[in-house]
C-alpha cells in the first residue's frame, strides 16, 4: 500500500487525561504493525518518543480529555499542527472515567487527595509554578477545539483504529466504518 501523495502519512498521537489504553490498543494490531510503519511516520508521539512537533502532520490522534491547563495547551498545539484531528476513546469523547470528578469543587478534590488521604505523611497541596493548573471539570476535546472525527470505545478495538487509519489515508470519511467494529453487544 502506498499513500496518495507518494510519501508516508505523518501521524501525531498523545494521551491527555487518559490511561494510555488507547495507545496500547493501537499496538494491539499485531503483525499489521509492519504494514503500519510502511504507510505512516510518527511525529510528536510516545510511539517514537518525539516530544515536540517538528513538522506539520496529516493526522492527530488524541486520547483522553482535558483535565488541566497543559492538556489544553497540547490539544491546541495538535489542532494547530494536524490537518485531521481525531478524538480516540471514551475519555477524549466524553471525558470518560476522569469525569467522575465533575461536579466536585476543585478545592474539595485537593483537600481529599492531599490532606485527608490516610497514606500521607504530611498534608501539603502541591503549589509549584511548574505544575499545570487543574481545570474546574474535565472537558471532552471537542468542547475545546474543533474535532474532525470520533472513534468510540474504551479502548476502541485495534481493528477499529486500523480500519479508521486506512480509511483516512484512502481519503474516505469515517462514516464508512464497518458496523462490526463499532458494535458493542
Amino acid at each position: 500500500m502506498s499513500t496518495e501523495m507518494g510519501r508516508k502519512w505523518i501521524v501525531a498521537t498523545t494521551s491527555l487525561a487518559g490511561c494510555f489504553g488507547c495507545h496500547m490498543s493501537l499496538l494491539d494490531i499485531d503483525e499489521k504493525i509492519f504494514e503500519l510503519v510502511k504507510i505512516v511516520e510518527f511525529n510528536k508521539s510516545p510511539f517514537d518518543d518525539t516530544k515536540e512537533f517538528s513538522m506539520e502532520c496529516d493526522i492527530g490522534l488524541v486520547e483522553g480529555g482535558c483535565c488541566n491547563s497543559d492538556n489544553v495547551r497540547v490539544l491546541r498545539l495538535f489542532r494547530k499542527h494536524c490537518k485531521i484531528l481525531i478524538s480516540v476513546g471514551q475519555c477524549a469523547i466524553t471525558g470518560g472515567l476522569p469525569a467522575m470528578r465533575n461536579g466536585i469543587p476543585v478545592k474539595e478534590l485537593f483537600q481529599e487527595s492531599y490532606c485527608n488521604n490516610l497514606t500521607l505523611a504530611n498534608s501539603l497541596i502541591p503549589n509549584d509554578e511548574e505544575l499545570p493548573l487543574l481545570l474546574d471539570r474535565i472537558y471532552p476535546c471537542h468542547e475545546v477545539v474543533q474535532v474532525d472525527g470520533f472513534l468510540p470505545g474504551c479502548p476502541p478495538r485495534a481493528d477499529l483504529l486500523w480500519e479508521a487509519l486506512n480509511l483516512l489515508i484512502a481519503g474516505k470519511s469515517l462514516g464508512k466504518i464497518s458496523m462490526k467494529n463499532v458494535k458493542y453487544d
Partner: peptide, 16 residues
C-alpha cells in the same frame, strides 16, 4: 467561523 469553543481557560483554572 466554522467552529467556536465556549471553553475559557482563565475561568476554568480560577479555583486552582
Amino acid at each position: 467561523v466554522d467552529y467556536l469553543s465556549q471553553f475559557n481557560l482563565e475561568s476554568a483554572v480560577e479555583d486552582s
